[in-house]
C-alpha cells in the first residue's frame, strides 16, 4: 500500500494554476481561435457561393458545387490536412508558394475549404426555407435573381442558418486540434508538448479543456445574442442570459 501511494503522481491543482495563463498556452489558444475564425469566414463566403450554385437549375453550375461538397464531406479532415500541407508542398514547386505556405495557413485553408462544404448545405437549406412567394414578389418588382437573392432571400435565410452555423463553428473550433497532425502548435498540441516536458499530462489536459470550455461558452452566448438580434418581431425574440440580466437590472425587483 505504501509503495502504491509513492508511485502515483497526484493531481496537482497548483500546476494547473501555473499553466492556465502560461504565455505558451495562451499563444496556442489564440492560434486555435484564429484558425477557427479565419476558416469560418472562408467557409461562410465560399459556402454561400456553393449554395447559390447548387440551387441553380443549370447543371453546368450546380454539378461542380455538388462534386465539391461530396469530396470535402466524404473524406476525413485529417487526410485533407495532410494533402493540403504536405501534398501541395510536393506538387507546387514555385518558390513564392513555398516561402509563403505555413502550417498555420495550411490549417486555415483546409478547415475553411472543409467548412465551406458543410456551410453550403446549411445555406442551401436556408435558401430553400424561404417561401417561394418571396421570390415571386421580388421578381414582380423587377429584381434580377441575384438582386432578389442578395436583398430578399439571403437575409431571411440567414435567420434560419444561425443555429446550425453556430453548431458548425463550435464543432470546428474543437476540430482544429486535429491540426497537430501537420505540426501546428494550437491549444491541444501545446498542452501535449508541455505535458510531456513536465510529466504532468492530467494537469495540462485540464488546462486545455478549461480553455476549450471558455471559448465554446463565449461563442454559445454570442450565438444566442445574435439570434435575438435578428429575430424580426418582439414576439419571437428569444430570451438570452444578457437580455434577462438587463431586464432584471432595469426593473430592479422584477423576477424574470
Amino acid at each position: 500500500m505504501e509503495m502504491d501511494w509513492l508511485l502515483a503522481i497526484r493531481f496537482d491543482v497548483d500546476t494547473v494554476g501555473d499553466f492556465l495563463f502560461n504565455p505558451i498556452i495562451l499563444r496556442a489558444m489564440r492560434k486555435t481561435l484564429y484558425i477557427a475564425l479565419l476558416a469560418m469566414v472562408l467557409g461562410v463566403v465560399l459556402g454561400t457561393v456553393l449554395a447559390v450554385m447548387r440551387v441553380s437549375r443549370n447543371p453546368i453550375v450546380s454539378a461542380p458545387a455538388g462534386v465539391y461538397v461530396w469530396f470535402w464531406r466524404a473524406t476525413p479532415v485529417i487526410l485533407q490536412l495532410l494533402m493540403v500541407w504536405f501534398g501541395l508542398r510536393q506538387v507546387i514547386d514555385e518558390d513564392i508558394f513555398r516561402d509563403n505556405w505555413t502550417r498555420f495557413r495550411a490549417a486555415v485553408v483546409t478547415f475553411g475549404l472543409n467548412e465551406a462544404a458543410y456551410m453550403a448545405e446549411i445555406v442551401r437549406s436556408g435558401i430553400q426555407s424561404v417561401e417561394a412567394g418571396q421570390m415571386d414578389a421580388a421578381k414582380s418588382l423587377g429584381m434580377t435573381n441575384l438582386q432578389a437573392l442578395r436583398r430578399i432571400i439571403l437575409p431571411q435565410a440567414f435567420r434560419v442558418m444561425i443555429p446550425p452555423t453556430g453548431n458548425e463553428f463550435i464543432a470546428m473550433l474543437k476540430n482544429t486540434s486535429v491540426a497537430f497532425a501537420i505540426g501546428v502548435v494550437e491549444l491541444l498540441n501545446a498542452a501535449r508538448i508541455q505535458a510531456a516536458a513536465n510529466f504532468r499530462p492530467m494537469e495540462l489536459y485540464t488546462v486545455a479543456a478549461f480553455w476549450y470550455l471558455v471559448l465554446v461558452s463565449i461563442f454559445s452566448l454570442g450565438q444566442a445574442e445574435l439570434e435575438r438580434a435578428v429575430a424580426v418581431s418582439e414576439r419571437e425574440r428569444p430570451e438570452t442570459l444578457l437580455s434577462r440580466a438587463l431586464a432584471i437590472m432595469s426593473s430592479g425587483r422584477r423576477v424574470v
Binding site: G133, D136, L141, G142, I152, Q156
Partner: peptide, 17 residues
Amino acid sequence: KRAAIGMVFQLFNLFPH
C-alpha cells in the same frame, strides 16, 4: 419589363425582414 407591371399576391408576400 416586369418592373413596369405591378403585382399583388393572395398571401401579400411582404418582405418580413
